Simulated assay, not measured.
Amino acid sequence: MSMFSIFNPLLKGSNNFKARFHGFLFNNVSTVTIRTLMKTHKGTAKRWRRTGNTFKRGIAGRKHGNIGWSHRSLKALTGRKTANSAYLKHLKRLLPYH
């Protein structure tokens, strides 16, 4: 038995404790709910941008190691790509506030 459970009736699980939150009286402590916020995945936030109802990203393969590549193949790697429709559910979960 920990030291905190002796002094805190919330941790002991007793139902006779009446909690007060902003003037409201709750007879049962389990009725108080806490809303947790979702976290933004920072690696995804650096790579994807929101556009209307989808996302866009840069095309990989243009940063370094391109000596000897033809201009035609490098030009194909420029620009932006939109997200695949099958991946949108994952992106919305990783970027909840974008």
Rank of each mutant, 00 (worst) to 15 (best):
T31N: 14
K42R: 13
T54R: 00
N27E: 15
T36C: 05
T31W: 01
L37Q: 15
T44Q: 06
T33H: 09
G52A: 07
F55L: 09
T44G: 07
K46A: 15
K39Q: 11
V29R: 01
T51N: 11
N53H: 03
T54H: 09
G43A: 14
K42I: 10
K46D: 13
N27W: 03
K46Q: 13
M38G: 08
T51A: 13
K42F: 06
H41F: 07
N53M: 04
K46S: 14
V29K: 08
N53S: 15
V32Q: 04
W48F: 09
T51Y: 04
R35E: 14
I34E: 05
T54I: 05
T31M: 08
T36K: 14
T44M: 13
F26G: 07
R50E: 06
G52I: 04
V32R: 00
K39E: 10
N27K: 14
T33F: 03
A45S: 01
T40K: 07
W48E: 01
A45Q: 05
G43Y: 07
T40S: 09
I34R: 10
T40E: 11
H41Y: 08
V32L: 14
M38E: 14
N53E: 14
M38R: 15
M38P: 10
W48I: 00
R47A: 09
N27F: 04
F55P: 08
W48L: 02
K46P: 02
V29W: 02
K42V: 11
G52E: 10
S30Q: 12
R50V: 06
T36I: 14
V29N: 05
L37C: 03
K39C: 12
V32N: 04
M38A: 15
G52Y: 05
K39L: 13
M38Q: 15
T51P: 00
L37M: 12
R49C: 01
V32C: 02
T51S: 13
R35L: 10
R47N: 12
M38Y: 11
I34D: 02
W48D: 01
T31V: 12
T44V: 14
N53K: 12
T51Q: 11
K39F: 08
I34H: 08
N53T: 05
K42G: 00
S30G: 06
K42A: 10
R49L: 03
A45R: 06
N53G: 11
N53F: 06
T31G: 08
K46Y: 02
T33D: 11
A45M: 01
N27Q: 12
M38S: 11
H41G: 06
T54M: 01
V29L: 11
F55R: 01
T51C: 11
R47E: 10
R50L: 08
R35V: 04
G43M: 06
T54A: 03
T51M: 09
H41L: 08
L37N: 11
T54Q: 01
M38I: 04
H41C: 13
V32S: 02
T51V: 15
N27A: 09
G43C: 02
R47L: 05
R50A: 10
